[in-house]
């Protein structure tokens, strides 16, 4: 257990030292929220919510996919390709401790970011305190676990550290847009709406709106939970199957 705490501390230090992670996955959602939030007037409505409130749920979704999926995947690919993961395998650090420390660090970063977003919303845009806080925490954990599983899974399909950020950006940015992180999907062409209807981030953002703004409890939204969970389980299975500790030879 001491070893786990030691590794968790190490991971947190590494996270805080990484400027790319700090900016792209942590600061950017906060910056977008402030910029976009200032564009809407206080009377504007999106999907029946106040515009700033809607944007807050979208930015939590954007923050989720940026941190738990993109940031995690890029870090793991880089560590695998530069041989750090291989080196770790030669040490007595238990693999489950390592994976758990990496995932927990990611989830903590996401939780801190979500808290910052909510605080910014309350201070700058008159958002109210989340109406169903316990369900919100459960939603964040569900989303964090699901996107982290997908993030680990995607590493198995990326072959080199050099192209990793490009490939991952090309996946998560469009997904964030289509899932309605930045604006309502109402005016999207039908095809995009169909795509949006299967993406887990759509359901996550919807669920965050339900519990944070409407005050619905998470168990009253079984469809949202089920879709997210299915993606999470698929991600976990793919992660178990395709995650590698060493670069592919050849």
């Amino acid at each position: 257990m001491n070893v786990f705490i030691h590794e968790l501390r190490g991971e947190m230090k590494l996270y805080s030292r990484s400027r790319e992670l700090a900016f792209f996955t942590f600061m950017l959602p906060l910056i977008f929220f402030v910029l976009l939030g200032s564009v809407y007037g206080s009377g504007d409505k999106i999907n029946g919510y106040r515009a700033a409130d809607y944007l807050l749920t979208g930015m939590i979704g954007y923050g989720l996919i940026a941190t738990a999926f993109a940031g995690l995947a890029i870090v793991l690919v880089i560590r695998r390709e530069n041989g750090v993961l291989k080196r770790l395998r030669a040490t007595p650090l238990p693999a489950p401790f390592y994976i758990a420390a990496v995932l927990l660090t990611t989830l903590i970063a996401f939780a801190v970011m979500a808290a910052c977003l909510i605080a910014l919303g309350m201070i700058l845009f008159g958002a109210s305190f989340p109406k169903a806080p316990v369900s919100l925490v459960a939603t964040l954990i569900l989303g964090g676990a699901t996107f982290a599983a997908l993030g680990v899974a995607i590493t198995g399909f990326i072959r080199r550290a050099e192209g990793a950020s490009a490939v991952i950006n090309a996946i998560y940015l469009p997904v964030a847009f289509i899932s309605g992180a930045f604006f309502s999907q109402k005016h999207f062409p039908e095809v995009l709406q169909k795509v949006a209807d299967v993406l887990p981030l759509t359901y996550f953002i919807d669920l965050v709106g339900d519990v944070m703004l409407k005050g619905t409890q998470i168990w009253s939204e079984p469809k949202d939970v089920a879709v997210i969970l299915v993606w999470g389980i698929a991600g976990a299975l793919l992660a178990l199957r395709y995650f590698r500790w060493v670069p592919r030879e050849d």
């Binding site: 030691h6 190490g10 590494l14 030292r17 041989g83 750090v84 291989k86 080196r87 030669a90 040490t91």
Partner: peptide
């Protein structure tokens, strides 16, 4: 056992002492 692989690998964003301290924590 101790291993030096054919190619080097560490945490580039940590110092020499921090890298050693992180790995030292894995051993009895």
């Amino acid at each position: 056992i101790g291993v030096v692989l054919q190619s080097s690998s560490f945490y580039d964003s940590l110092t020499v002492a921090e890298n050693l301290a992180l790995f030292a924590g894995y051993y009895m």
